[in-house]
Each structure stands twice: as structure tokens, then as C-alpha cells.
Amino acid sequence: MKRIASFSDFITMYVEGFKNLTWGKPLWIIIIVKLFIMFAILRVFFFPNLLNRFDTSEEKSEHVFRELTKNHITNEKKFSNESD
């Protein structure tokens, strides 16, 4: 069997390897289906990056600051309600 002597031989090894898959074939099907579900369905419809709706870093930091503040204020309110 021909040994790898050049970069093109290296590429050929990959191509032939994929062509001659036996037990690996169902695994590649699983990988492709899984990546499709992850990136084309889950990522798009269920897992948007919430901070990407803001254009600038300032807007993102302001949003996170408001979120962190909101929780703090809520707790403060709870404190005062409890003491009342």
C-alpha cells in the first residue's frame, strides 16, 4: 500500500478514509444529524444569544447592569416587606 509522501497523499488518505468507512458510517450520520439539530434547530429557535440583540458593548453592559440591579432591588423590597 502506498505510503504518504506529500501533502496531496495526506489529503487522499482523508478522502479514501471517508469513502471506505464501514462501522464509522452510522457514526458520521449521527454526527451530521446531531450538528444539524444543534445548529439549525436548537441554536436558531431555542437558544438565541440574548445579548446579541444589542448592537454595542455599552448597551450590553447597561442591560446586564439593569438585570443585576433588578434582582438587588427585589431583594431589598423583600427585606422591607418582611420587616413590615
Binding site: 444543534m38 441554536r43 444569544n49 446586564v64
Partner: peptide, 17 residues
């Protein structure tokens, strides 16, 4: 990688912080 999706959606405050 799904964990990284979750960071962006479910834990966005954390991810920024």
C-alpha cells in the same frame, strides 16, 4: 457546545459578567 448555547441564552448575565 450545547452548554455554550445555554450560557448565551439561559445564563446571559453570567456570560457577560
Amino acid at each position: 457546545i450545547i452548554l455554550e448555547f445555554e450560557f448565551g441564552t439561559n445564563w446571559s448575565n453570567y456570560s457577560w459578567f
